[in-house]
Design a protein around this nucleic acid. Structure first.
Ligand SMILES: [Mn+2]
Ligand SMILES: [Mn+2]
Ligand SMILES: [Zn+2]
Ligand SMILES: [Zn+2]
Lengths: 139, 139
DNA sequence: ACATATTTGCAATTATGTTGCAAATTTTAT
DNA sequence: ATAAAATTTGCAACATAATTGCAAATATGT
């Protein structure tokens, strides 16, 4: 359990606890985004469901992770890499969901393009999710 | 309850029932996308929750309505206007969600732009949702 | 009008998420 | 190092959303 993770918690003014270290560690080693259920399963020494909900919520508020709006309306989370801050995210990258392996991936370098909206619409935030086959799964 | 709605059901090889007529009618007269809860409330002579779930699922399978992946992971539905077919949708338009009034709108004329993905990713379907203020709500 | 096929509503079950609170843990002050 | 204060955790209870099996009701084809 790396020292860097502990530091991240401290940098964000959060108490350093086992659950938080363990969950953050999962995110750092995960191949893609994680759902609540993924975390619940992977947690070696069991973490309570409620603690997981609260930890995810706290991480999200602190700008450590962001939620990903997938097409099937399931909630997934991934680390923020865009120096998000407490209370305000700016992860404006595209997300990819593999229809075969189910992996959900942040395409950190692919920005969500602007679109021209009809008269009167005032955009604030855009989300884009692409479904298809990831590099591991295309045939 | 228009005859056209009845015909739409027949054209799609579905039995014509009160629930279906009533729900389809709602979609035709709604100002935006509808959530399961919206339908449950509006139904004049009460339709069972389960029937609503099943009706929405059937409509979706038949290519009559499509789901909208909102940023807050709530499920909304709207009529397909892009001649979707049984089993395969191709609603490739942008969706707009108003942060003030909550209305969710299909921007049928705004196509989801293509994005260049990293090497190896094979896109199949893209979704884009824009949040902001709709024409009625901007100040 | 009847037989057949489909849909509906109900009850039971499962999944997902939230809240209050006491006990445990972590942090801060001494 | 110890104690007090602050925060976090786990449990139980609750709330909400969604799914399933099945019998009764309704719709369809003849
Ligand atoms: Mn991301
Ligand atoms: Mn739409
Ligand atoms: Zn894959
Ligand atoms: Zn609005």
């Amino acid at each position: 359990m790396s020292e860097a993770i502990k530091d991240l918690l401290k940098k964000n003014h959060m108490s350093v606890t086992d659950s938080r270290l363990q969950i953050l560690d999962m995110f750092y080693h995960a191949p893609g985004a994680l759902a609540h259920a993924d975390i619940e399963k992977k947690a070696s020494d069991k973490i309570d469901r409620v603690t997981i909900y609260r930890t995810l919520q706290t991480f999200e508020e602190k700008g450590i992770i962001h939620t990903i709006p997938t097409a099937d309306n399931s909630v997934k989370y991934a680390l923020c890499k865009d120096r998000c801050e407490e209370g305000h995210h700016h992860d404006n990258h595209v997300h990819f969901v593999c229809d075969k392996c189910g992996k959900t991936i942040c395409l950190d370098d692919v920005h969500v393009p602007e679109v021209k909206l009809p008269k009167g619409f005032q955009p604030q935030q855009s989300n884009m999710v692409v479904n298809g086959f990831c590099s591991d799964c295309r045939s």
